[in-house]
């Protein structure tokens, strides 16, 4: 039996497949941790990322998408899309066009990019918890 095989490694922390956990974790900040029964950390991560995202939008930041001839925009787009559902919701609501002339524009971008990168980094944490490399 697989569960008696010592070579099989520790039991996964969730019955959901890893791919689904990663997808949920990307779409909704903290949801991956919630499904792995890390409730406190899920709440903290959700709050931190959502606050950063909303502040970024309020500061006239831009939801950067890839632009031809601008290689850095591709990197920025990965971070921005890393926000998951908040990114799609903001796009749907017509937010995040960015006002380049606004004094807060760069600050807004910083918050939006940071929020996306924090959410993407959580995926690695989900992976580690799922694999049993991290017990808490």
């Amino acid at each position: 039996m697989a569960d008696q095989n010592p070579a099989a490694g520790p039991e996964p922390a969730s019955r959901l497949p890893l791919s689904l956990l990663l997808a949920f974790g990307w779409l909704v900040p903290g949801l991956g941790h919630l499904l792995l029964r890390r409730r406190l950390r899920a709440a903290v991560f959700f709050t931190v990322i959502m606050v950063a995202f909303v502040v970024g939008i309020l500061l006239q930041g831009e939801l950067i998408l890839p632009r031809a001839g601008d290689p850095l925009s591709y990197v920025a787009a990965i971070a921005i899309i890393g926000n998951g559902v908040p990114f799609f919701a903001a796009r749907y609501l017509g937010l995040g066009h960015g006002v380049v002339t606004a004094a807060s524009y760069e600050f807004g971008n910083t918050f939006l990019l940071t929020a996306g990168m924090m959410n993407l980094l959580l995926l690695l944490d989900i992976f580690e918890i799922y694999r049993g490399h991290k017990e808490w």
Binding site: V44, F45, T114, M118, L121, D125
Partner: peptide
């Protein structure tokens, strides 16, 4: 910004 980053990494 520093506050959010610090909370995030403290819990991560």
């Amino acid at each position: 910004h520093a506050l959010l980053i610090a909370v995030y990494f403290a819990f991560l």
